[in-house]
Design a binder for these strands. Structure first.
Length: 586
RNA sequence: CGGGAUGUAGCGCAGCUUGGUAGCGCGCCACGUUCGGGACGUGGAGGCCGGGGGUUCAAGUCCCCCCAUCCCGACCA
């Protein structure tokens, strides 16, 4: 039993000034967490109970699926990460440190290397596989900008699993087992998730899905198709490529004076004024916008890259980085333009781009820009554009890239219906890693024929600490937190309203009775605290059931309030323990 | 890294324009009143005004330089 009179807790009446999102505000106000450093939080008694409940659910579901728990250090040697290239690929996001002998160490951002090496240590036969092991571990990533409290910290807890199989069919089966276990886990946590196609990011690998919790403060954007059910992170959306067209009867391209049109908007306006089309007005989508960026590779080298895309779309930096990973994208600065005189800012065209162009800069096209389509685009001279430049006839690029932003109402890649777009939190990520790590670290087993085979791996994560905040985010209301029973710090919050001795005696009897009945309880036994304060605190703290012991006692009843629905009912004091125990059992 | 803002008591803030020795609310301590929707009175404790330098008889306030934090853009569970 938790007694409010002695509980290590101080609730705050006002929102903390550094908190922006509801979960952050409420978790701090309710005394669940305290900030220790930017993106690093301490768990207080109530917060730690929620955290451990979530951890317990995750652990039970992993165990039930037959995965075995291990536990690695968070402090790791550099060597394995050197072998896979991630010591450099991870860049500044890696917390690095040295011991007294000046040996390099890191705080693990993720543990593929360690798992791979551990299995290599112990196993060497196909008979040992399949294997799936997991840990629940604190991870460290020196994020450029931690934000939103627990939702995105530099220290966080992740459940990460890894599967090991001898062949692709085995990997697929392991992947499906994890997928099923994740569906169960999130259902038990009361966390709504949408399974979306995803990219595999810095981890490498192929098939990949994310479990996204729809949430307005989420940092991911995903699309869903209302008619066929297709769902994907925008980073992973494949655009619908129109068929190539014949350019036999297209008119030749013409270079035209288009003064003071450095942006798509100004260009479209001028096209309609000076070069009106017979059939319809010019639109931004008729123009080909060429955006130049710098790729910063992990080894420190810089490479300019040009992306050509329809003028009605921006470059989506997330999508672009997903494509060029592990390189990161930086802006093409004024000095970069100075170094590339062939590029006329505002009037860049295919003539200056591509490895065969005058600048030699690698040039990739949005897949919509297909062979045989005609575009208005920069003429590589200030104040001039070229109209009717045809792909394949007048210019060619070095390839295609999926870097254009996805727009709501874009066609579904699978069925063509209009897509819907939503924000969400990435709660889980499952993917088929393949043989990248096993190859780099030499994880081999002998097959039936005595031949060495490289093991193929899957990697699966759940954001355990993030789930605390995500559940708070999903369930809170204007009065405070509102925990699902499975993860709440306690199931019942007893308020002793008023200072009459009979009230305290009865409330104490009920609290002790619940304790004996194994129903977890918080008892607000504070003396001299007004009923109003206790009610506000009970609502802020968010236990699923609130029991008010007070003036109803005169009629032999106590008040039971469901925190989520707000429904109240009076229950005779003699039945209250059985009543609550039944609620607890569901 | 770019852009914006803020650092004054445990928390939330005022004071800075116009320099003059530190204030409000919440919380905390004591006593009394109150006691079912964040009560009230009286009396208290608590501050290197982010750090350093400068101007000045005098700096929380003016000037310069740092540092830190938060928010908006590029990473990920």
């Amino acid at each position: 039993m938790l007694r409010m009179s002695t509980l290590f807790l101080r609730t705050l009446r006002e929102d903390p000034v550094d908190a922006e999102v509801p979960s952050h505000k409420l978790l701090v106000r309710g005394g669940y967490v305290r900030r220790a450093a930017p993106g690093i939080y301490s768990w207080l008694p109530l917060g730690y109970k929620v955290y451990r409940n979530i951890e317990r659910v995750v652990r039970e579901e992993m165990d039930a699926a037959g995965f075995q728990e291990v536990h690695f250090p968070a402090l790791l040697p550099k060597d394995p990460y050197d072998k896979t290239g991630r010591w450099t690929d991870y860049g500044d996001d890696l917390f690095r440190l040295q011991d007294r002998k000046k040996n390099d160490y890191l705080l693990g951002p993720t543990h593929e290397e360690m798992f791979t090496l551990l299995v290599k240590d112990l196993y060497s036969s196909y008979k040992d596989l399949p294997l799936a092991i997991y840990q629940i571990q604190t991870k460290y990533r020196d994020e450029p900008r931690p934000r939103a409290g627990i939702l995105r910290g530099r220290e966080f807890v992740m459940k990460d699993s890894y599967s090991f199989d001898v062949d692709d069919a085995g990997l697929e089966a392991s992947y499906q087992r994890h997928r099923a276990a994740y569906i169960k886990t999130f259902a038990r946590l009361g966390l709504e998730t949408v399974i979306v196609s995803a990219t595999s990011g810095a981890m490498g690998g192929s098939a990949s899905e994310e479990f996204i919790n729809p949430c307005p403060v989420g940092e991911d954007t995903f699309i869903q198709c209302p008619s066929c059910g297709y769902a994907a992170n925008v980073e992973a959306v494949k655009v619908v490529v129109p068929p190539a067209q014949s350019h036999a009867d297209l008119p030749p391209a013409s270079v035209e004076d288009t003064p003071k049109t450095p942006t798509i908007d100004t260009l479209v306006t001028m096209l309609n004024e000076r070069f009106p089309r017979a059939d319809r007005p010019w639109k931004a989508a008729d123009t080909l916008k060429n955006v130049v960026v710098n790729l910063l590779h992990p080894d420190g080298t810089k490479e300019p890259l040009a992306v050509g895309l329809p003028g009605n779309r921006e470059v989506d930096m997330k999508r672009l980085e997903a494509q060029v990973s592990p390189a990161v994208v930086e802006a093409f600065e004024v000095e970069d333009f100075a170094k590339n005189p062939a590029l006329k800012k505002g009037y860049i065209g295919p003539g200056s781009l591509g490895t065969k162009g005058t600048s030699g800069i690698r040039y990739l096209l949005d897949p919509r820009v297909v062979e045989g389509t005609a575009w208005v685009t920069g003429a590589d001279e200030y104040n001039k554009h070229v109209i009717g430049l045809v792909v394949g006839r007048d210019f060619a690029a070095d390839g295609t890239i999926e870097a254009a932003e996805v727009l709501a109402d874009d066609p579904c890649p699978r069925c063509g219906s209009n897509l819907t777009m939503e924000k969400g939190l990435e709660m889980g990520h499952i993917f088929q890693l393949g043989r990248k790590y096993a190859e780099a670290l030499g994880l081999l087993v002998l097959d039936q024929n005595g031949k060495q085979q490289v093991v193929t791996m899957g990697s699966y994560g759940i954001g355990v600490s993030r789930a605390v905040a995500a559940i708070a985010e999903q369930t809170h209301d204007q009065f405070g937190l509102c925990w699902p029973r499975e993860v709440a710090p306690a199931e019942v919050h007893i308020v002793a309203a008023g200072n009459a001795e009979t009230v305290f005696n009865e409330a104490t009897r009920i609290a002790e009775g619940l304790d004996a009945a194994k129903v977890s309880v918080i008892f607000d036994d504070r003396i001299g605290v007004s009923a109003g304060v206790k009610f506000k605190d009970a609502e802020l703290l968010g236990m699923p059931t609130i029991v008010v012991v007070g003036k109803g006692l005169a009629d032999g009843v106590v008040e039971v309030k469901d925190r989520k629905s707000g429904e109240k009912s009076n229950v005779p004091v003699g039945e209250i323990i059985d009543y609550l125990a039944a609620l607890s059992r569901g």
